[in-house]
C-alpha cells in the first residue's frame, strides 16, 4: 500500500483493506443503509465490507471466516 497524499486537516481518507474492512479516520458517525446514524467512538473505525459482521456497520472480524472458506 502506498502512502496516501495528505490533504488538509479536515479531510477524511478512506482506506480499503484487501479482503477486509474499510478504515475511516476522523469521522464522527457512519449512516447505515437504513438511514440510522452510528457514532464513531474511536479515531479510526473499520466499516464492514463483507456484509457478515454482527455489529453493522462496524467490522467484527467475520470476513476472516469468509476468507478461509474461500481459500479452502
Amino acid at each position: 500500500m502506498r502512502p496516501v497524499p495528505s490533504g488538509s486537516p479536515g479531510d477524511v481518507v478512506a482506506e480499503l483493506c484487501p479482503g477486509g474492512p474499510m478504515l475511516l479516520r476522523g469521522v464522527s458517525a457512519v449512516r447505515d443503509e437504513h438511514g440510522e446514524l452510528h457514532e464513531a467512538t474511536r479515531p479510526v473505525v473499520a466499516v464492514c465490507m463483507c456484509g457478515r459482521s454482527q455489529r453493522q456497520p462496524w467490522c467484527d472480524g467475520t470476513h476472516k471466516a469468509v476468507r478461509s472458506t474461500r481459500r479452502g
Binding site: 474492512p21 474511536r42 473499520a46 455489529r55 462496524w58
Partner: peptide, 13 residues
C-alpha cells in the same frame, strides 16, 4: 471486538 478489528488492520498492514 470492534477495536481490534481496526487494530489488526493497522498492525498487520
Amino acid at each position: 471486538v470492534e477495536a481490534d478489528a481496526v487494530h489488526e488492520q493497522l498492525a498487520v498492514r
